Simulated scan of single mutants.
Amino acid sequence: MNLEVITAEALDGIDHGFFTRKGGASSGVYAGLNCGFGSTDQSDIVAINRRRVAAAMGVDQTHLCGVHQVHSNDVVRVTAPLSGETPKADALVTNQPGLALAILTADCQPVLFADKEAGVIGAAHAGWRGAIDGILENTVDEMEALGAKRENISAIIGPSISQSAYEVGPEFLDSFLAADPENVRFFTNGQDDRYMFDLPSFGLDKLRAAGVGHAGWTRHCTYSDPDRFYSYRRSVHKKEADYGRLLSTIRL
C-alpha cells in the first residue's frame, strides 16, 4: 500500500510530509505506519515503517533524525546524522542538506518550519506543555541562530487534536490563565465543569507572536479520523492497551 503524505503549500520547494497511518506494516491497534519505538509494537515492524518514510523522503534511514521527546522546550541543533544515545528534546533545527528532521505525535502538534531563502529548517513536537513553555519560540530562535530570518520562516502545524475533541478540567484552564489571562480565548465551555481547549489555535498564536512570516494548520484532527491518524486520547477512551505514533518530517 502506498504511503499517504499531507503537505503544505507554504512549504513548497522543501521536501516535507505529515505522514498518516496508511501504508505501514503494523497490525492490531497499531495497524498502519506506526513509527514510534516507544510503543510496544514489534521493533522490527516499526523499523520497517521508518525505512518506508526515509525512502519516501529520499534519505537513508540513518539520516532520519529524531529526539527522545519529553514535553520540554529544548531544541537540538543537528549537524550530522544522530548516533549513540538519542538526545532528550522536543525540536530539531538544521542547515545541512540531506538530513530529515523527524517528530512523532499522536494528538500533540507536529510543527514543520522552513526559511527557504536561508536554507534552514526545523521540526517541533508541541503538546500543551511544550507550547506553553516556549518550544515553538525556541525553535524559531535556534533557526535564527543558524542564519534564518524569522520574517521569512513558514511554520505549519500538522494533524493535531482539535478543540471539539480536547476536553480538559478546571485545573488545566487555571494553568493557562496563570501564564496569561488572555489565554482564556482558547477555551470554550464543555459539560459541567469541563472546558474544550483549542491547541492548534494556541500554537498558531505562539508562532505569530514569535514573528514568523507565515503560520498555518493543515486542519486535520487526529482524534476524529481513526482511519488516517493515531490518537492517544482516542485510545484512552476506547480502553486500548497502546497507540501508534505518526511521523512528520522535513529536509533540505
Score class of each variant (00 low, 15 high):
Asp205Ala: 11
Leu99Pro: 07
Ala178Thr: 07
Ala91Cys: 05
Leu246Ser: 14
Ser154Ile: 02
Phe172Ser: 04
Leu33Glu: 14
Gly38Ala: 05
Gly169Val: 01
Ala114Arg: 05
Ala102Glu: 02
Leu64Gly: 04
Asp193Met: 02
Ile6Lys: 13
Val212Met: 01
Asp41Cys: 11
Ala80Trp: 08
Leu99Gln: 12
Glu182Gly: 01
Arg21Asn: 12
Val59Met: 09
Lys116Asn: 03
Asp193Lys: 02
Tyr30Pro: 08
Gln42Thr: 11
Ser160Ala: 09
Val140Glu: 03
Phe37Ile: 11
Thr222Gly: 04
Phe202Leu: 07
Phe172Met: 04
Glu182Ser: 12
Glu144Trp: 00
Asp227Ile: 00
His220Gly: 03
Ser83Arg: 15
Ser26Lys: 05
Asp205His: 12
Gly23Pro: 10
Ser39Thr: 15
Ile45Tyr: 09
Ser83Ala: 13
His125Ala: 07
Leu252Asn: 06
Val93Ser: 03
Val78Lys: 07
His214Leu: 09
Gln96Gly: 00
His68Leu: 14
Ala114Asp: 04
Gly98Leu: 10
Ile6Ala: 09
Ser72Met: 11
Val29Gln: 14
Gly58Asn: 13
Gly32Ile: 07
Ser43Pro: 09
Lys239Ala: 15
Leu104Cys: 08
Asp198Gly: 06
Gly147Leu: 12
Phe186Ser: 04
Glu240Pro: 08
Arg208Met: 03
Asp12Pro: 10
Asp74Tyr: 15
